[in-house]
Each structure stands twice: as C-alpha cells, then as structure tokens.
Design a protein around this nucleic acid. Structure first.
Lengths: 339, 339
DNA sequence: AAAAATAACTAAATCGATTTAGAATACTGT
DNA sequence: ACAGTATTCTAAATCGATTTAGTTATTTTT
C-alpha cells in the first residue's frame, strides 16, 4: 500500500493542500497553526512518507536532477570528476545522471536529448562536438548548461577548463630547459577537442619559438595502445627515436610506458616522458612521471556553481566568459636529462 | 513554447489519446488507420516531440531509470562497473543514477531512499551494510534489487559476486608454492564486507592448512596510505618485515608500493606482493604485479539481467542463489621468489 | 430495412503532487 | 452588533502523459 499525500491528509483529517504546505515549509507563510503542523509531521514520520518526485517534478517542472555527460566515465579523470560533482550535487539536494559518449558526436546529442526528456534541470558537459551550434542554441534557449574540461572559444557558453595551453607550454619549456631537442607529441584524435588541441599547441609554440618543430602524431581515442605500438615499432626500426615524448593525457602515457617496456627502452634514458593529468602510480614507479595537473576540485566546484546560478536565475541568460584554472607542474624523474 | 501531447493532438486534429496510442505503438491494437498514424508521426517529427518522462512515469509508475550505488564511483573498479552497466542499461532504454556511499551504512540507506522516491525501477547495489535486514525487507516487498561485488550469505537477495574466497586461496597457494612463509594481509575495514572478508579468509585457510598463521592488519577505508605507512614504519624499525604481502584490493596495493618505495624496499626482493583486481599499470611497472582479476563484464551483464528479470516479472519474488563468477590468477614478477 | 458487427476514434479518469483564490471561523474596535 | 481584519484551512486547477470504457459512423448480416 502506497503512502501518498492523500493518505496522510486522510489520517490527519486535513486537506492534502495543507499537508503539502507543511511538508514544504510554507506553514508559517500560510498561517498554519503549530498544532496542525505537528500532527501532520507526526503522521508523516509514522508512515515514513516521502513525496513522489515524479509527481512533484511534473507539477513544478523541477527534477532536482542534473546530467553529467563525459566521453567515458570509466576513465579515472572523469570518474573523479563524477564523484566530486556527485557530492556537490548531493549537498544541494540534487542527483546526478551519468552518460558516456565515447567521443561520439551523435551519441552525445542523443544523450542530451534523453536527459532533457527526463527533465534534468541542467547539464554539465565535457563535449566531443566539433562545432558548438546545437549547444549554443540550447543554452540561448535558456537551458542550464556548463561545459567542463572542454570548451568552445567565443561560443558564449559558460565553461570551466584548465589552462591547457599554458600547461603544454610549461611542459615544453621544462623539457627544453632540460636539454631535450627532439620532442614527439602523442595527441588524441579527434583533435578539435579544445583541451588536447590547446595542450599540443601550447607545447608546440615553445619549441617552434626555439626553432624546433615537434613531430605530432594523432592517436585515435578508441585504439590507443595498438597505434602507439605501431608508431614506436616503426621508429625503433628506423632508429629514429625522439628524445622526449609529451602524452596529452594519462591514458596515452600509460600506453606509451607499456609500449616502451615492450621494446626494452628506458625512461628517461632512451626517451623522456611528460604528460597531462596525474595518476596515483605516476609518483610510485621508477622513474616517477613528470606531469601537469589540473585542480579538479576547483574545476568541479566552479562548474557546479555556474550551473546552480543558471538553474536558479531563470531569466538572465548572459554570455559567459570561459573560466581558466591554472595548472601545476610536478617535476619528477621521467623528464630529467641524464648527462 | 513547450511541445506537449496536447499540442500535437491539436495540430493533427485528433485526441491526445490517439496520439499517445500511436506513439506507443498501439495503433494496430486499437484499430487506428494508417493514414492517421502517418499524420500524427509527421507532426511529431516536425515539432520534434518527445514525451515528458515525468508525466509518463507518474502515470505508468515506471521511470526507465535504475540506480547504482557503490562505495566510491571514483574508484577505478566501480567506475568501470558503472560504465558497463550504463551501456547495458542504455541498450535497454534505461538511464543510470549513481550514488557513492563512502562505505557509510547510513549514507547508503539514505541514498536508497532518495533513489526510491525518485522512482527508480530497480537498484544495483554494492552494499556496505553490516546486516541485510533492511535490504531483505525491500527485496521481499518486491522492489527490484541485485547485489553486485558484495553479498549477504543466506539473505535470499539476488547477488553476483566473484569467487573471492577462491581468489584469496589461489594467491595464497601461489605464494606458498613460491616458498613464501611469512605473509601479511592488508585487509580493509570494515571487514564485514563479504568481498574482502572472503578474500582474506580464503587466503588464510591455505596458510593455516600449512601450519602458518598469517598476520592480518585492518586498514580503514578512508585513510589507507597513512595507516599502511605507520604499519611498515613500525615493522621496518623492528626489523620484522613479512616476506610477502596480500593486498585485498588494488588501492591497498598502490599504497603499499608507495610506502615501500619511501622505505627504499624492493618488490619482490624485500617483500613480495600480490593483490586483488588488476590495474593497467600493474603490467607496465617493474616489477609487474601479480593479481587475481574478476570478470567484470560477466559480473555486470549477469547483474543487469537479474535486475531486468525482476523489473519485468513483478509477480515472482523468489529467493535467489548468489551467483559466483570464477576469478583468474595472473602471475607476474612481484611474487616470484628470488633465490 | 432493422439489427449486429466492425472500424476508428474520443472523453474522462488517473497518477501524486503543488499552488492559489477564497471559504469559514474567530477576533477587533467602534 | 456589525463591518473589518486576522487566522486557519480547503477546493479545485494544474502539470503531461496513459488507459479504458464508450461513442459514432460505417459496413455486414439476415
């Protein structure tokens, strides 16, 4: 037997309107007597009544649910992001529905649609779109949306990202200072994704400013290990190894390390390594891995605030600047030149 | 301007009942003419109408959403689990709402409540409860529930778990065969959690059968690194090191490796290591780490099927046996005795 | 040609809440 | 004693779908 607001109202002998008002803390506002409040709450507790969220959402148009869409929730970076956002959301009475896109543009669009039909109050999105048209329309139409990790320059959609370009440059400068002169960039395809694109271009600029043009290879998202293996297989055969490698994310770094060990090559003696985003094991292994890290907690809390702002102030849908959060270089053994 | 079923009905010039029937594929059943169907669908497409899920759920009592509750979604194991379940769910038209409990019994109960108020159609749970009373009641009351990774013996709640005991035994036997005689078990608190409990007891049995009683230390979930550090700090001081360590999960193994390197101790020369659940880096590092792995894909698909069964057959709420999936030993360098 | 059967559709109830205008009662001041 | 004001509460509309009993028009049967 279901416990609905009608049941409560019956038991107490009042209207369900009253019960609703009491439950939603509007008793004072509507001059409901303390006695009545207490009687209602007593029954509510006795029967452990919890309002049906579907009914509530239908009426109010608010679901207290937000959507989080990322390329792959099993990826450690996004998993941590999900966790932090989950906690922030929970503190504000929100739940999180999660979707993974596999970097697939259509899957992303489909997911957005599904979540909107499910009346999520807003979406936090790490987009794999190539252009931002659809997202702009959505945002301009007043749907609460915040981009995280990846943004679209000049699209006017609120976004919170790391200073990826700066991060790439920092790593490049570090390698250059160490005396490395023959860098290879392992970049992820699709390369139009802002984060990896900017990491690469920031990296490139430092070297080209020093008259060195880094080689950049594109690795498809879906088949990292094998492609990295092929690349190094060829380079080993041609005795054409770089003296250092920049992996634009930690999956690439892991694949790279795995491939190197297959070829019995050592870091940093044979090839140095730097990468984006720390992993627990990077500081444990020998050699430990030099990285640039993003302040994930800051990214998440900024993002969540921006979303909440939009959700509460339905009117103002201003253009938003992208927020760039600074990154941190952690120098470890993998990038120290052996003399 | 919202696109509702009323709008569609108006535009086409039919009742909204008809629109609903057409949309839900019941046109034939209700003898609606092909012409009318086509006219409805044309408008539906033109206005890109998608039914409001809240309204639909309110009416039907079905939300096409399932809940996933784990201790921590940022943990790689659960993140992968989430991803696999998300994909399975998506294929069946379901969304996944995620919650993390931090191994906190009350948080878990609260989350279950919240998800149920949100009318999730069922819950997949990796429980941190000490006893299963509440969960049993829920299940017996007909709420679709499947336990994953952790179960309650004789509770009658459907569960899909790895052969943890067997896994612990396998690792123990491997270590014993390698000649290790002084094992230390790093166990997670709370230890009533079936998975880690059984890993430990399975491990212990093999050694006690060989007249060796392994030392077991309890590490609180929330502060792994520091506690492991303290333990080894003491052991190093007392020159009382074990010759091998069994970490009941990969977080413990990572912390252990980190601590060991702090003390300049080497694996496996000073202390060997085996652990439960593989990580990408375990096969890359020197030495690579011996592990027992769970067939996560099988666990997930079995779990999801069991949940779907319950969701579709509302009547039969039978007692269920726990399903145990076999685990696999991957022998690597960290457990090979140096002569 | 009246009765029965079929085809194609619709009205209205329903799910479980929220919200607002206004009803009922008691209390003031003159 | 009565209009005016508080106080406390309720009726009914509403959100956007689904579902079922029933209506209307058409065709078939006898």
């Amino acid at each position: 037997m279901k416990v609905t607001i009608d049941l409560i109202a019956q038991k107490v002998g009042v209207s369900k309107a009253l019960v609703s008002l009491v439950i939603n803390g509007k008793a004072k506002k509507y001059g409901i007597s303390q006695l009545t409040c207490d009687r209602v709450m007593a029954v509510v507790r006795e029967l452990n009544y919890k309002p049906n969220q579907m009914a509530r959402s239908l009426r109010t148009g608010v679901s207290n649910t937000i959507g989080l869409i990322v390329s792959d929730i099993s990826n450690g970076f996004y998993a941590s992001m999900a966790r932090q956002l989950e906690d922030l959301a929970a503190n504000s009475g929100y739940n999180v529905v999660i979707g993974s896109t596999d970097e697939n543009i259509n899957k992303e669009l489909r997911l957005i649609n599904i979540l909107r039909n499910r009346q999520v109050d807003g979406i936090i999105l790490s987009s794999s779109q190539e252009n931002s048209e659809e997202l702009e329309n959505m945002f301009k139409a007043g749907f609460p949306l915040v981009l995280i990790d990846r943004y679209f320059p000049n699209a006017g959609i609120p976004a919170v990202v790391a200073e990826n370009s700066q991060g790439g440059a920092t790593l490049a400068q570090h390698l250059f200072n160490q005396g490395f002169r023959n860098p290879l960039v392992l970049n992820i395809t699709p390369s139009y994704i802002s984060s990896v694109g900017e990491r690469t271009s920031g990296f490139q600029k430092v070297f080209t400013d020093n008259s060195i043009v880094p080689e950049v290879v594109q690795i498809p998202f879906s088949d990292i290990y094998n492609v990295v293996y092929e690349i190094f297989s060829k380079k080993v055969k041609e005795k054409n190894l770089p003296d250092c490698v920049f992996a634009v994310n930690n999956n690439l770094a892991t694949a790279f390390l795995s491939v190197l060990s297959k070829f019995n090559l050592a870091v940093p003696d044979d090839v140095a390594l730097v990468c984006f985003d720390d992993l627990p094991y990077f500081s444990i292994i020998k050699p430990s891995i030099t990285v640039v890290t993003q302040p994930l907690d800051v990214l998440c809390s900024r993002t969540f605030s921006l979303l909440m702002e939009q959700i509460s102030n339905q009117e103002k849908v201003e253009e938003h600047e992208t927020i760039f959060e600074p990154v941190t270089l952690i120098t470890r053994e993998s990038s120290i030149k052996i003399k």
